[in-house]
Design a protein around this nucleic acid. Structure first.
Length: 164
DNA sequence: TACAACTCCGCTG
DNA sequence: CAGCGGAGTTGTA
């Protein structure tokens, strides 16, 4: 992992570079980036110790070795978006729900749910990859549908293996 | 107002 | 039954 400045860093993962931002000791952003991970300043040892477990968990998750995250995030968005994201957060590892399922829970429409999903900047922690079309199709994903498919297959495989 | 990471419904082969 | 097109729907810039 390389560090950009005091409260952000970028990690290289098997699905691409991931940008991570922290504010007031909470994660506020986990998002793909095209930024190169070179020539970055290093963090203070204090901040480094904050990032280290977070980065390890994200990397571990993407490799299928970690199922839940132990750190907390701070959601930034409209009240509707937060409602959607909180519902998505309840979807368990290896499971999926449809946009319609979420819409019913919060008394809204699937189209609006999809819109909120597309605004999710806390990838994996808010597992929007677990939200798919009601007909079984994949729907969309900020990192592309092949990545969404990879994540879902990985989770399903581990789900069966671990007998969750 | 236009548009979106959706669904539903009614057609057509 | 699969595939397609259009309408309905809610939240956002």
């Amino acid at each position: 992992m390389k560090y950009k400045n005091f409260n952000t860093c970028i990690i290289k993962t098997k699905i691409g570079n991931i940008f991570i931002e922290i504010k007031d000791y909470k994660v506020i952003k986990i998002f793909p980036t095209n930024l190169k991970i070179t020539n970055f300043k290093y963090l203070s040892s204090k901040t480094l110790s904050l990032f280290k477990p977070i980065n390890q968990q994200i990397e571990g998750f993407l490799e299928g070795k970690i199922i839940n995250f132990s750190f907390s995030i701070h959601l930034q968005g409209s009240s509707f978006q937060k409602k959607v994201w909180n519902e998505i957060k309840k979807i368990k590892y290896g499971k999926t729900l449809s946009y319609l399922d979420i819409a019913k829970k919060i008394d809204s429409s699937p189209r609006a749910v999809g819109l909120a999903c597309s605004k999710n900047i806390n990838l994996f922690i808010i597992p929007c990859h677990r939200v798919i079309n009601s007909n079984g199709n994949l729907g969309g994903y900020i990192m592309g549908n092949s990545t969404k498919n990879y994540l879902l297959n990985m989770e399903k495989k581990n789900y069966d293996f671990l007998l969750l």
